[in-house]
């Protein structure tokens, strides 16, 4: 793997709602090729942390800094936990992935656009299923289509909110393998929220444990055992 290069620097980050502090003075970096898992029980601020990373929320204190001129919001792909996709309509996987190519005034997809979509579908192993309608696809295929959509702009970081939630073992492994390939082969930084001990233990290069009471821990895979983490 290439030498780690910092993409995001988090300095004294403090966040909470009303009187409750979720975390206080959090310092860490997210580097190229990282696999960062954010863990902790529900309501401890994991999704909030993701929103802070994308600068969709303003922190109570501290800051999130994007490092370098080549890294910004457009280099981050996001896969939300819940989608409200217009599923009653004939939207196939190919068209869904292409939705994120919106920086073009030509209404139809160009040849270049189609090549980008094909490349993204190949990365998530959905080339064969690109004509299938999204709403009739399996949970695992949908999740892979969501990842393909996030990949379409060749992001340097992908943020995922519980990407393996509700998936069977096989689909879960497929999704994790795709993420692992992106991390190792393409050096994309993976940031995900997960309640799955297997996913976290086997793949993470960094772990952020949030407790929801202003305390937190940052570490590597050993942190899970050391702190007897609750998933």
């Amino acid at each position: 793997m290439t030498k780690n290069k910092t993409l995001i620097e988090i300095t004294n980050l403090t966040m909470g709602f009303d009187q409750r502090l979720l975390f206080k003075n959090l310092n860490m970096t997210i580097d190229k090729g990282d696999f960062l898992s954010i863990i902790g029980p529900n309501g401890t601020g994991k999704s909030t942390f993701l929103h802070l990373l994308m600068k969709k929320l303003t922190p109570k204190g501290g800051k999130v800094t994007y490092i370098g001129t080549n890294f910004g919001p457009k280099q981050i792909g996001f896969v939300p936990q819940t989608r409200n996709i217009a599923e009653d309509y004939p939207l196939n996987i190919f068209s869904f992935v292409g939705l994120r190519l919106y920086d073009n005034l030509i209404p139809w997809l160009t040849r270049k656009d189609k090549e980008k979509i094909q490349a993204a579908l190949k990365k998530v192993r959905l080339t064969e299923k690109s004509d299938n309608l999204l709403y009739s696809s399996s949970g695992g295929e949908k999740q892979r289509a969501y990842i393909a959509q996030a990949l379409i702009t060749k992001p340097k970081m992908i943020i995922l909110d519980e990407p393996t939630n509700g998936l069977d073992e096989r689909s879960k492994n497929e999704v994790v393998e795709i993420l692992k390939n992106l991390q190792v082969k393409d050096h994309v930084a993976i940031v995900l929220v997960s309640h799955d001990p297997d996913v976290v233990r086997k793949n993470s290069t960094k772990i952020l444990q949030l407790n929801g009471d202003a305390t937190f821990a940052v570490g590597d895979q050993t942190l899970v055992e050391k702190n007897n983490v609750e998933f």
């Binding site: 819940t82 989608r83 959509q149």
Partner: peptide, 12 residues
């Protein structure tokens, strides 16, 4: 294109 994206995938 932006309208199509926003209509089909409002969360994204």
């Amino acid at each position: 294109r932006p309208l199509k994206y926003d209509s089909f995938d409002p969360v994204g």
